[in-house]
Amino acid sequence: MKFHPAGHKIIRNTFILVIAFNLIGWLFVSHSFFSGLISLATLVVLVLVLQFFRYPDRKVAVNPKNIISPADGKVCVIEETEEKLYLKRKCLKVSIFMSPLNVHINWVPVPGKVTFSMHKEGEFYAAFKDKSADENERYCTAFQLADGREIMANQVAGAMARRILNFLKKDQQVTQDMEMGFIRFGSRVDLYLPLDTKLNVKLGDKVTGSQTIIGELS
Rank of each mutant, 00 (worst) to 15 (best):
E123T: 12
K59N: 14
S132R: 02
K113F: 04
V103G: 01
T197V: 13
E83C: 04
F128V: 07
V44M: 13
A157I: 11
E80F: 13
N66D: 14
S30K: 15
R149P: 04
G73I: 05
I16W: 09
G25D: 11
T115D: 03
K93P: 02
E123V: 03
G7E: 07
D57G: 00
F116E: 03
L199Y: 06
K169T: 12
F3A: 10
T42L: 11
E179G: 00
T115C: 10
W107C: 11
R58M: 08
T212C: 07
S99Y: 04
I11F: 09
A6R: 07
P111A: 14
L168Q: 02
D72N: 14
F182G: 04
P64D: 15
D205H: 10
D177G: 12
L27R: 01
I11E: 07
A6P: 00
F53G: 00
R58I: 14
K113S: 06
A159R: 02
F3P: 00
Q155T: 08
E135A: 09
P5V: 07
D147T: 10
V47M: 11
M160E: 04
S99F: 06
L203P: 03
V114D: 05
V108W: 09
G7L: 06
D130E: 14
D171C: 03
N13L: 13
V189M: 08
V207D: 04
F52N: 00
L37K: 05
K74W: 01
D171K: 14
V29T: 11
N63D: 15
V110L: 14
D190C: 01
V201A: 06
D134V: 13
L199R: 05
W26F: 15
N22W: 11
I19K: 06
N136R: 07
W107Y: 15
G36E: 10
T81L: 08
V94A: 10
Y192F: 15
R163K: 15
I213A: 07
R54F: 03
C91T: 15
F15V: 09
S69Q: 07
